[in-house]
């Protein structure tokens, strides 16, 4: 290990201990395990800074936070999964005595052979771990893939496809002619003047049209088709830019939240 690394480590350890002591003594008037809580707040601040240090480069502190995060989060996910899926979903259907032990309401209708099938499929899935029975684990996977492929087939055909077609049916010719004056009034992008509305409707229609042309795979993008496709990708790019810009603000407010933690909860400066 380099000397500079050692010095940085030592400084971090000293700062950590200092923060722990200060934090714990600040918490002392309140009852409860203040030493533990002082440690936890300091540790949270340390982890926050450790992750942020990744912006500079990969370093031991980031590695520490990363590996701890992976382990703890996997355990968290498993514990939550144990109660939300095993205890809530599986147990009530398997046996009355198990349901009584876990104190979950049993489902009288569910207590039948039907519910042993997924358990058997689950056990087949575990056969992956054996070097020779691995092939049978494809059955449960096939079941999951098949069921959800059918489900998604319908879901997307309905929501993404048919509904989107029907919502493209917008007035392009204007509803009522009230003379040239009202038609040209309110020439402003945010206004609801007739001309502006009509233009917007045309942009939507042409946007969908050219966008779909861009997604044509089996036809060469040449000539008029090529022009359509190019306009399509331009409109796509404008949209992506707008959506990019839209997200920036939201992300910055997240950063504000973290800065508030560091300077408020930990250092109590703001």
């Amino acid at each position: 290990m380099k000397k500079s690394t050692l010095i940085v480590m030592a400084v971090v350890v000293v700062l950590f201990l200092l923060s722990w002591v200060l934090k714990a003594s600040a918490l002392q008037p309140e009852q409860g395990s203040y030493i533990l809580r002082g440690f936890l707040v300091t540790f949270a601040a340390f982890l926050t800074l450790a992750v942020m240090s990744f912006l500079y480069q990969d370093n031991p502190f980031y590695k520490f936070a990363e590996h701890l995060f992976v382990g703890v989060s996997a355990a968290f996910w498993m514990c939550m999964g144990f109660w939300t899926t095993i205890v809530q979903n599986l147990i009530p259907r398997l046996s009355t005595s198990l349901a009584d032990y876990f104190m979950v309401p049993q489902r009288p209708e569910g207590l039948n052979l039907f519910f042993y099938t997924p358990v058997i499929l689950g056990i087949l899935l575990l056969m992956r771990l054996s070097p020779r029975g691995g092939w049978i684990s494809r059955w449960p996977l096939a079941f999951i893939v098949g069921t959800t492929a059918g489900l998604n087939f319908i879901r997307y055909l309905r929501s993404d496809f048919i509904k989107q077609i029907s919502s493209t049916f917008v007035p392009l010719l204007g509803t009522q002619w009230e003379g040239i004056g009202p038609f040209l009034s309110n020439l402003d992008l945010s206004a609801s003047g007739q001309l502006v509305l009509l233009l917007s409707n045309w942009v939507v229609f042409l946007g969908v049209f050219t966008g779909l042309i861009y997604f044509f795979f089996s036809k060469e993008h040449k000539g008029a088709f090529g022009v359509g496709s190019r306009v399509g990708i331009w409109i796509l790019m404008i949209t992506f830019g707008a959506s990019f810009g839209y997200t920036v603000m939201g992300r910055i407010s997240l950063l504000v939240g973290r800065i508030t933690f560091l300077f408020g909860t930990w250092l109590e400066l703001i």
Binding site: I165, V203, V204, L206, G207
Partner: peptide, 11 residues
């Protein structure tokens, strides 16, 4: 334009 492109992508 966002609405149009989104719709094209979604379809």
């Amino acid at each position: 334009p966002n609405l149009a492109a989104q719709r094209a992508i979604i379809i």
